[in-house]
Design a protein around this nucleic acid. Structure first.
Lengths: 235, 235
DNA sequence: AACTTTTGAATCAAAATAACGATAAAGCTG
DNA sequence: CAGCTTTATCGTTATTTTGATTCAAAAGTT
């Protein structure tokens, strides 16, 4: 038995804003579209929600198709659904943003798609309203990360204190006083110090740390401040 | 020219979680469904996204139809889209939550719908996954309100300090030390004291305040803490 | 080698937090 | 009037957090 016979059917898409961190700057993963319309233009990776999957599952599927990765940190960020947002026909798009470590996963980017990392503040012109999607996801990333420790998802399994601070500096484009920042970080009990040093980036070497996953899981759902309050005024 | 010819079309709905505050407890507005399927069962107010409107516009339209009100505080909260979430056919639903003051608007609730306010922790069984929608919206309300001053949307134009604290007590089910809470509140410059007292709820009477809209608009987008941090651990 | 920059550890003062105590005014009730 | 509740204000204290600073060792640069 079917109801809602007079209600309109709509194309429902998901688009993924994939943030990455290469140790220096915040990046975003874009592809050259392989199908019409707007073939060969830069865009976010996206696709349509299929009958047997939820929008979230669709986003997971698309992320996996592009990066080969599952279990990424992913979050629904916004919905773009103005009737005329795509020139040719009506498509409502749900956006998801994901966080990954670019170095670790550079090599497994799917060859099937012409994907490329771009700096968050310098990427080519995008189709439709995809730039707006990025801007909105970036705003969400910032406000989330000011309260929840989600940025650790952008780091490798083992990371150093200088890496964390440059990640925060990249996301918020601020300068951080490492002395205070490191103290705050260590006092959070979120990090476990390893007996190993990263000698690649400096001669002295910086100790590696890993996330204390137990504490992290507790805190990921609770409120924390990782930034001095003066830096999170402009949202 | 149409593309995406092989992609599936989907029914896209919006459902509204309408929170209200009557001066004592947090409420939620439910309706008795007037159409099949599940006619005469309690549910959230919802509807389908029409060809000429965005999902957000659809939510606004639906809110207005039910409450007569425009310009409500409204925010997209979640998406429910498992293929089998409605028994009969596939519908993806976007939920929006809205905040209103129940006392002020009780009378203009549309007669067309059998709408009724229920306490947030005691409402009838709902159709499909609507209860899950409420739970998720309530969680979002809590975490938003801990950081942004959105709860003022639940209060009348003129409100008293005791009303604010009981609102926070209701939303978080905690006891608040009014001495510290009022001090914090007044120091925020968010309130303007009026020369008028509410004598209904006490013999002495409590002074009315209004929102300083200028400061509010600034702060609504920035970070503030309105609760002692011990109370926002469990999100 | 001489210089600048970056850090980690320690310290300090100011501010914010949370808990608690006390008081008083307003208006009601008995 | 005395006693009660509600509202509001003021003050105190201990603790924690914050942001700034000093200092010396270690890197990096020229």
């Amino acid at each position: 038995m079917k109801f809602y016979k007079n209600e309109p059917l709509i194309l429902l898409a998901v688009d993924c804003i994939i943030f990455g961190f290469n140790g220096e700057s915040l990046q975003i993963l874009l592809i050259k579209r392989g199908f019409e319309p707007e073939i060969n233009h830069w865009s976010l990776m996206g696709g349509f929600v299929q009958p047997e999957e939820s929008p979230e599952e669709a986003a997971t599927r698309i992320l996996k198709k592009l990066t080969g990765l599952e279990n990424l940190y992913m979050e629904q960020s916004s919905i773009f659904g103005k009737p005329d947002r795509e020139k040719y026909q009506r498509v409502v798009s749900i956006t998801y943003f994901a966080l990954i470590d670019t170095n670790q996963y550079q090599h497994i980017l799917s060859d099937e798609y012409k994907a490329k990392w771009f700096p968050i503040d310098n990427y080519p012109e995008l189709i439709f309203d995809h730039e707006e999607m990025i801007v909105s996801a970036k705003r969400l990333l910032r406000s989330k990360a000011a309260v929840y420790p989600i940025l650790f998802e952008l780091l490798p399994e083992k990371f150093t204190l200088p890496q964390i601070s440059s990640l925060y500096e990249a996301v918020y484009t601020i300068d951080i006083d490492k002395r205070n920042f490191n103290r705050k970080l260590l006092s959070s009990k979120l990090l476990i110090k390893l007996n190993e040093k990263d000698k690649e980036n400096s001669k002295k070497g910086a100790f590696y740390y890993t996330l204390n996953r137990d504490v992290y899981k507790e805190r990921i759902m609770s409120f924390l401040r990782y930034l001095p309050s003066w830096s999170i005024q402009e949202q």
